[in-house]
Amino acid sequence: MDVLQLVISGLANGCVYGLIALGFVMIYKATEAVNFAQGDFMMFGAFITIWLTNTDFVGLPFWLSVILAILIMGVFGYLMERIIIRRMFGQSQIAVVILTIAIGFILRFLAGAIWGHDPLSLESPFAGKEVRFGGLVLGADEVAIILVTLLLTGSLFVFFAKTKLGLAMQAASQNQLAAYYMGIPVKRVHGLIWGLSGMVSAIAGILFAAKGAIDPSAGLLGIKAFAAAVIGGFGSLPGVLIGGLIIGLTEPFASRYIAAGYSQIAPYTILLLVLVFRPAGLFAQMQKKKV
């Protein structure tokens, strides 16, 4: 029973890492940039939702706030590409990385300046509720997180595999020049990918804040999500989600069974092992190289 509790809470954390990692991977695949502010996008999305719905602030209905926050972060991601990242075209990848790290700092500073540095909780309909399956008692927040994550990953998978825009995004990431030749508006597609990953990170933030308090430094867990993305091979969406779950599951068990002080390094140990033994990630897409 106790172990099951650890598993569920590990999975729930892992889902949040997995969703942030999805944001990393979508942007990386499409544009070859890594957005190190992804974790801070998550944090900012959470704070916007808290601000919109908590009775101390605006006090809008929960679901309306959720939708608004997702849209706001979508527009935010899109504009960030339009206004800032696009100007970096032709610069080295390192320049973009440093820029996104700086944007992360700015978001953390802004959130602290607007909402303070004390942890806040999201007033959600799941808080404190329980779900019973047979003899099990599970937190409604954790069940919701797992369901939402599965649903979202599944929808993204279908979106990329079946819809015209999703296929065009894949095409632009596999061969940008050919995408231009086919009339795919590559720049707009890049903007939309940033928008989409802003929306996904907002959802990750809402889920994170629904299961506990959040403060402006929460975005730093983006590092763990980055580890999840690497473990997942920085490629397939389900692989990345599994990478997140692996990290998420490791943590509660490590803190339970490994001496305090060492347990926190467990996720990074896994990252190191993966990098050494499977540098392309555990779930790298195989590609037959042309001779």
């Binding site: 296929l167 065009a168 596999q174 020049l177 995408a179 590609q287």
Partner: peptide, 19 residues
């Protein structure tokens, strides 16, 4: 040639009709 290497033949053809 510059095809989309990880997509199927059919998906490549579909991308030709993007506009």
């Amino acid at each position: 040639r510059e095809i989309f290497p990880l997509m199927t033949v059919e998906e490549n053809i579909a991308m030709g009709a993007y506009v």
